[in-house]
């Protein structure tokens, strides 16, 4: 994934309640890695581009570190072209399965919540 390859959806920054982001950032970060290995700034830019606001490094990196410990992602340092290296995060099979499970759970939860809000 590359920051320069911006997707079609550019919904701008949003100021969502921090509780909402705290609850969903885990599988959103996994989703951001589903297209292929990516690095910190690219993940933050991807989430920002899709309207989740600017996620801080102090929030993202501890999450990815925990996922690495749990075996959901692997990391690899790649030398940068003329600049510092980049730490790439990639989904493992376990991470992909977890993303599938959490996505399904979230869709079910969102449907129930939406149905309840719109009787």
């Amino acid at each position: 994934m590359d920051v320069s390859n911006s997707g079609p959806q550019t919904t701008g920054s949003e100021d969502w309640p921090s509780d909402w982001l705290r609850a969903t950032l885990g599988f959103l970060a996994l989703r951001a890695l589903s297209a292929g290995p990516s690095y910190g700034y690219a993940i933050i830019s991807e989430l920002e581009r899709h309207g989740f606001g600017t996620i801080k490094g102090g929030t993202l990196y501890p999450l990815l570190t925990r996922y690495e410990t749990a075996g959901l992602v692997t990391t690899e340092w790649r030398a940068g072209a003329g600049g510092p290296g980049r730490k790439y995060f990639a989904l493992t099979d376990q991470g992909r399965a977890e993303l599938t499970r959490l996505s399904a759970d979230w869709r079910r939860f969102a449907t129930i919540s939406t149905d309840y809000l719109n009787p």
Binding site: Y39, G40, Y41, I44, G57, Y61, W77, G83, P84, G85, R86, K87
Partner: peptide, 13 residues
């Protein structure tokens, strides 16, 4: 590793 990844992000942002 922690220092390098933090510097990488600061360099980007």
């Amino acid at each position: 590793d922690t220092i390098a990844s933090a510097k990488e992000l600061l360099n980007d942002t």
